[in-house]
Amino acid sequence: MTRMDLRIFTEPQQGATYDTLLTVAKATEDLGCFSAFFRSDHYLHMGDVTGEPGPTDAWITLAGLARETKRIRLGTLMTAATFRLPGVLAIQVAQVDRMSGGRVEFGLGAGWYDAEHTAYGIPFPKARFGLLEEQLAVITGLWETPEGETFDFKGTHYRLTDSPARPKPAQAHIPVLVGGHGAKRTPALAARYADEFNMPFSSMDDTKKQFARVREAVAEAGRDPGDLVYSNALVACIGKDDAEVARRAAAIGREVDELKANGIAGTPAEVVERIGQWREAGTERIYLQILDLGDLDHLELVASAVAPQLG
């Protein structure tokens, strides 16, 4: 049986400094059982938090972490296509990949949070899926252009002429993540560009249905559906006993029963069983959303009491 791949996923817009993120990333690496540290790409907090001391930029953060870590993969769930021009983003991600020695993975989404765009003067067009499609075409096209050749693109939203298509990433191919709930266009986009398909914060039934759609679209595109990794992002709330689970749930303002129904929550034994259910649903990789970034004991518990049981 294939071992479930566990990754750590953070939401720094809810309140985190770079130093906090560095501490979590180093713990992610040092504990040995997590393959990657990922973060969101948002500029404004959500819900009943202040987001102090303010947002940190995803790719600037990952550039710093690229020099401070050695093993773990680094990436975003998901970079918003509305935030950066695709040519600039291709350069940024390629540079961070080189800074990390080839450990970057690139998640790109359409962007959805209109309030952060308004807050920071970022355009928020209604038709964003077209931006996403063209950005994926431009960014992967720039990376894949052979050395010595130029790249041209003529689309509705972006036009590039005689681009030298540099710098190249350290990796021959940066893994691309596409995700979401769309029934038609999203699976088609994943079939064309993705190395991994991610379902964020979804029920098991919805996950099964969307994975099936993606597999069908990948096959129709002439690719092997097994070539993609199928993953979920799920909030984590794990404790050595019921009291500790309840304490961690309260610390992030959530209810235990809701977390058990919709996330990865409970005692280690409960969580191992739950992860087994996700495996049966087709999930190969889980991004554990850690909302209390000051609670490093949480990560240590997963490493000592959960990960060793995941055969």
Rank of each mutant, 00 (worst) to 15 (best):
105 E>M: 15
220 E>H: 11
164 P>Q: 10
260 K>F: 09
309 Q>A: 10
270 E>W: 06
199 M>I: 13
37 F>P: 00
182 G>L: 02
275 I>P: 08
311 G>A: 15
234 L>F: 10
65 L>S: 06
216 E>P: 09
180 G>L: 00
53 P>R: 12
277 Q>S: 01
242 D>Y: 03
217 A>D: 06
43 Y>D: 03
72 I>M: 08
224 D>P: 05
9 F>L: 09
136 L>M: 13
68 E>S: 09
207 T>M: 01
204 M>V: 09
135 Q>R: 04
96 V>I: 13
70 K>I: 05
114 D>N: 13
188 A>N: 07
134 E>H: 01
303 A>E: 07
237 C>G: 05
36 A>C: 03
285 R>W: 01
71 R>P: 04
154 K>P: 00
273 E>W: 00
144 E>C: 10
134 E>R: 07
51 G>M: 09
133 E>I: 01
156 T>N: 10
68 E>M: 10
100 S>Y: 05
233 A>T: 15
133 E>A: 01
101 G>Y: 03
95 Q>W: 06
66 A>M: 04
160 L>E: 09
307 A>V: 14
26 K>T: 03
232 N>E: 04
87 G>H: 12
202 S>V: 13
51 G>A: 13
12 P>Y: 00
196 E>C: 12
54 G>P: 00
41 D>H: 10
251 A>Q: 02
161 T>S: 15
42 H>K: 11
190 A>R: 14
36 A>H: 03
79 T>V: 12
24 V>K: 01
268 P>E: 04
88 V>T: 04
305 A>S: 14
244 E>C: 11
45 H>G: 07
26 K>E: 07
96 V>W: 05
208 K>C: 13
123 P>R: 11
251 A>W: 00
97 D>C: 07
246 A>C: 04
140 T>N: 03
39 R>V: 13
103 R>L: 05
158 Y>N: 08
112 W>S: 12
311 G>Q: 14
116 E>P: 06
288 L>D: 02
34 F>W: 08
308 P>K: 10
155 G>M: 05
52 E>A: 14
197 F>I: 11
187 P>W: 08
